[in-house]
């Protein structure tokens, strides 16, 4: 049971959006700019993967499944491949630049101070730009907020992981700002 009364049937952050529309608006706008704007050299899939990875480290079931499914949709990877990335991305066939950025995101999840100059250097050596490093840190930090919001109020989420995969194409098409909360 959520810690505050939320509309039944609205999972995860969606129940919180209905509860507090005023704060939902900037939260959604931030997600849209960071994860979906095309004025970015990181693909939507790469950015969703950073969100999914941080959410898995924070053990947030709802967020890691929503964003894992979106990353899978964009990158054409199945649930098993996404799970493998969450558990040991260094051994996967992801680009070396993305591995370096995921390593930075993993440190941000623990605390900002855990990001080392060596990690930044590695990302740069693999071709990451200032803006990509900036966005990686901010996406990771933003998910440390979203995950805590969702779990801190003990929101409900469907346990069937396949559901998130089935919803991903719709979620990818509608984005984070202009959508029907109840669909």
């Amino acid at each position: 049971m959520p810690h505050i009364p939320l509309t039944e049937g609205l999972p995860g952050i969606r129940g919180l959006m209905a509860y507090s529309p005023a704060t939902a608006r900037p939260l959604n706008e931030l997600a849209e700019i960071l994860l979906r704007y095309d004025d970015n050299t990181l693909t939507r899939g790469e950015r969703e993967l950073i969100g999914a990875y941080v959410s898995s480290l924070n053990d947030c079931f709802f967020c890691q499944n929503v964003h894992g499914a979106l990353a899978g949709y964009y990158l054409d990877l199945d649930m098993q491949a996404i799970d493998m990335i969450k558990q040991r991305y260094e051994t996967t066939t992801l680009s070396d630049k993305l591995k370096a950025l995921l390593s930075i995101a993993g440190s941000v999840q623990k605390g900002g101070k855990y990001v080392t100059a060596a990690q930044i250097e590695r990302a740069r050596a693999e071709g990451a730009t200032d803006k990509e490093i900036h966005d990686t840190v901010l996406i990771a930090a933003a998910f440390c907020m979203f995950n805590r919001y969702v779990d801190g109020l003990d929101t409900w989420a469907p346990r069937d992981r396949q559901l998130y995969i089935e919803r991903a194409p719709l979620r990818a098409a509608e984005g984070y700002i202009d959508f029907d909360l109840y669909k």
Binding site: G111, L138, F146, N147, R148
Partner: peptide, 16 residues
């Protein structure tokens, strides 16, 4: 909860 969560963003952004 949301203020606390927001500062978990800010603190990581600033130090990260």
């Amino acid at each position: 909860v949301l203020i606390a969560a927001l500062f978990c963003l800010y603190n990581r952004y600033v130090d990260g």
